[in-house]
């Protein structure tokens, strides 16, 4: 399992998370990150981890639990 938290203050709206894990992340009308749903399987968890790694403003934390 992983726990995902996002810091909308830090987010700079690059959209890298949406490209990496489109089932997990989206951008709201302001372009800011929102979590659609917690990743359900291992591929989705991997994608979410990847999104955390490439986020340019380090606004995404994917905690293993």
């Amino acid at each position: 399992m992983v726990r995902i938290s996002v810091d909308t203050e830090r987010c700079v709206g690059a959209g890298q998370c949406v490209l990496s894990a489109p089932d997990v992340f989206d951008q709201d009308d302001h372009g800011i990150v929102t979590v659609l749903e917690e990743p359900a399987d291992e591929p989705a968890r991997d994608a979410a981890r990847q999104a955390g790694l490439v986020c340019p403003s380090q606004a995404i934390t994917v905690a293993e639990s």
Binding site: V12, G13, G15, V18, L19, Q27, D29, H30, G31, I32
Partner: peptide
């Protein structure tokens, strides 16, 4: 500036 402009360049 960034916050004003990002809605124009989102993935969607």
């Amino acid at each position: 500036f960034r916050k004003t402009l990002i809605p124009e360049f989102t993935v969607r």
